[in-house]
Amino acid sequence: MSETNSSTETGTQRVRKTRKPKKSQIPFAILLTALIIAFGFYLGQGSNKLPVYWIFGIAFGYILQRSRFCFTAAFRDPCITGSTSVTRAVLVAVAVSSVGFVAIKYASAIGGGDSNLNMAGVSPIGLPLIIGAVLFGIGMVIAGGCASGTLMRVGEGFLMQMLSLVFFIAGSVWGAHDMGFWGKLNANAPKVFLPDVFGWFGAIVVQGLIIVLLYIAALKWQQKKMGSIE
């Protein structure tokens, strides 16, 4: 993002704080990259899978930081400022991923065999899901980042997020401990895989429609709250 309009107007009025002598962090970046690669090879000695997990982690963290992509902001900003630019980006993300996922699932379903992936990633819809989602929503706004966001910000050097990560982990254990109770409420909770309800073609139409309608709603919301749809 570069300097923008009317820089002379605001610029000439104020006395600028002189920038401290420059230090480049690029040498550390190169060193870290070497260590990341070396660690990948180290992981590869014992397992084929672990270096792949490592690559995915590095890529997710790198992309999240470079784009400032933030699932928290997608749900929070509409409530605070009315901006939906991140919300719409999340809709783009789920739209693109849906195309890939449905292709893989469909291929596995028509391919037969015992590795049917239809129910992969499909969770029960019950009271625990609803309560969990509300709690998670409150927590992520207060702490300033969700799970991936917290990890990303730990990498950026945020001490506050390191503290929040510790309690995130503690809360997870607490939640796991109580799942004996909550699990009972999930006993009759349905696991709904959309193609089971609407058929493959119907599910794609329904999912696409939901995403498009939400996208339009997000634009309208921003228009209403901020007067612009940028």
């Binding site: 789920v94 927590g139 992520m140 991936s148």
Partner: peptide, 26 residues
């Protein structure tokens, strides 16, 4: 915030990634 997220994520079987991004794509 950390405690709420941790507890909530276990109930919901995931966070914004597992219970939202991955679940919707699935």
């Amino acid at each position: 915030g950390g405690l709420f997220m941790g507890y909530g994520a276990r109930l919901a079987n995931g966070c914004n990634i597992g219970a939202l991004f991955t679940a919707i794509a699935s």
